[in-house]
């Protein structure tokens, strides 16, 4: 890959910016990791086992769901189904990232995608809308998220039983709140009503009748298509 084509696509400065922004998410990510660690410990995971799962699977909601049916001989199938159900939204996230990453070497893109989580995806979309295409921001934030997630997992599985009910710290609300503030950030005007509302309505139906996190995939597809085909008030 010639150096000039790569320029601006993976910079040290971008990595630092993403990493710092990811570190600012520390309370939420660590808290979420603690929640997982506590529950993992309660179904008999060792600290090492819980940590290995957090590093290699790196999907909070999927790991939590997998714990629900952990233990019997059907654990393998249940755990894989939990991952697919909860991570289905990432199929859509990855599709949205692809045009933004065009021009980067495939190996770099596919390695970066291992670190795809909700916050760095949302920040990548924000960067995209600002006309920036530095993948290192996405990777830096992913690395910071991984570190926080792992620290939380270790802390939770080692000492978590001392904490009691983590819901009272409001940690479960951190990610929704982050998405809400990003939605405010993305909001430009009336054209945004259609995808947001249509996505929300379809998601509620999926949430009610399907379960898992299929509502994010279903609502995301429906809302974005509605937004794409709804006549726009201003030129795109």
């Amino acid at each position: 890959m010639p150096a000039d084509r790569m320029r601006g696509i993976f910079t040290r400065d971008g990595f630092r910016r993403g990493f710092m922004e990811g570190m600012a998410l520390l309370p939420g990510m660590i808290g979420f990791g603690v929640v997982f660690g506590v529950l993992a410990g309660s179904v008999g995971f060792t600290v090492l086992g819980a940590s290995a799962m957090s590093v290699f699977v790196f999907a909070g909601t999927a790991q939590l769901l997998a714990l629900h049916s952990w233990g019997g001989s059907g654990t393998l199938l249940a755990a894989v189904v939990a991952v697919v159900a909860m991570n289905s939204r990432y199929i859509l996230f990855g599709a949205a990232l692809q045009p933004w990453m065009r021009g980067a070497p495939p190996l770099l893109s596919y390695a970066s995608l291992f670190l795809l989580v909700d916050p760095n995806w949302a920040v990548a979309m924000r960067e995209r809308d600002m006309g920036r295409r530095d993948i290192a921001v996405f990777v830096g934030m992913g690395v910071a998220s991984m570190i926080c997630w792992l620290l939380g997992t270790i802390a939770g599985s080692a000492f978590g039983q001392l904490l009691g009910d983590t819901r009272r710290f409001g940690l479960d609300f951190f990610l929704p709140a982050f998405f809400l503030s990003l939605a405010c950030d993305f909001w430009k005007g009336r054209d945004d009503v259609m995808p947001f509302v249509a996505g929300g309505l379809v998601a509620v139906m999926f949430d009610r009748y399907v379960g898992g996190s299929w509502h994010v995939l279903g609502g995301g597809v429906a809302g974005s298509l509605a937004g794409a085909f709804w006549p726009r008030r201003r030129a795109a």
Binding site: A96, L182, F186, F196, A226
Partner: peptide
């Protein structure tokens, strides 16, 4: 990436955010 695909990709983040937030609100 045709203009229609671009419009779809542009609408995607808010559709996802609506989808995540609506069930929580409910």
């Amino acid at each position: 990436v045709t203009p229609r695909v671009e419009a779809w990709l542009k609408a995607l983040p808010l559709a996802i955010m609506g989808s995540i937030l609506a069930p929580i609100a409910l």
